[in-house]
Amino acid sequence: MAVILFDGVCNLCSSSVQFIIQRDPEKVFKFASLQSETGKRYQELFKIPASTDSIVLIMDDKVYMESTAALLTASRLNRPWKWFRIFLVIPKPIRDKVYKWIAANRYKWFGRKESCMIPSKESRDRFI
């Protein structure tokens, strides 16, 4: 099992979670928003800075953030998304610069919710 922590009030992030759920038939990933009590416990347990508002992937007791988290997540999805792993050959500072640019503009481009997303009945078991 792998856990993805995400910004629960971000429309892009919430849409990304739904995208992952639809392409993860083996149900590898579980989810928690960074704002939730569970998300905060994971942040404390894995010493993830409280200021983090990026996607966080916790897999095999290791923490991955930003572009690495996104690409490793994609690599566990159905084809063609698993091929995105090839982008890991791009140096992390370059990948993260692009990631941070998108992250810095995500509320402006995609909007923001007043509260965290509520999972559908079909996907509720994927949230911890």
Rank of each mutant, 00 (worst) to 15 (best):
E114T: 12
A50R: 15
I102K: 04
R126A: 07
I4L: 14
D7F: 04
P25T: 06
P49A: 08
I55W: 15
I90K: 05
L34C: 10
E44Y: 12
F19K: 07
S36Q: 00
K97A: 14
L88F: 01
R112V: 11
F29N: 06
R85L: 13
R106Q: 07
Q18C: 04
P91N: 02
N105F: 09
I58C: 00
V9T: 13
A74M: 14
E114D: 14
D24R: 09
Y42W: 08
F6A: 12
R76N: 12
K40H: 00
A103S: 04
L34H: 02
C116F: 05
N105T: 10
P93Q: 02
N78C: 08
Y42E: 02
S67Q: 05
V3C: 04
I48V: 02
R85P: 06
R106I: 04
V56M: 02
L72K: 14
Y99V: 01
K30N: 12
A74Y: 02
K108W: 09
N105A: 08
D61A: 12
F6M: 04
D60K: 14
I118Y: 04
R112L: 06
P93C: 00
I118E: 13
R95G: 03
A50T: 15
P49K: 06
T52G: 05
P93V: 03
M59H: 15
K47N: 14
P93D: 11
L12C: 06
S75C: 04
L77K: 00
K113S: 11
I21G: 01
I58M: 06
F29Y: 04
K82I: 08
D24F: 10
T68S: 10
S14P: 01
K100Y: 05
F46N: 06
A104G: 15
T38M: 09
Q22P: 08
R79M: 12
D61N: 15
L71T: 01
M59L: 15
F87G: 00
V3Q: 11
R85M: 13
K108N: 06
K82Q: 13
M59D: 15
N11T: 11
K47S: 15
E122S: 13
P80R: 07
G39A: 10
K30A: 05
L5A: 00
M65Q: 15
F127R: 06
C10E: 00
M1L: 12
E37P: 04
S75L: 01
F19N: 08
I128W: 05
S33M: 01
F84T: 09
R112Q: 13
W83D: 07
I94Y: 09
R126M: 01
C13I: 03
C10V: 03
L34I: 07
C116R: 07
N78Q: 14
A69H: 07
K92N: 00
A104I: 01
W101Y: 12
S67W: 00
I58W: 12
R85Q: 13
I102V: 15
V28E: 13
F29E: 02
E26K: 14
F87D: 05
P25R: 10
A70W: 01
W81K: 05
K62M: 11
S15N: 14
Q22F: 06
Y99I: 08
S75H: 09
K82L: 12
I21P: 05
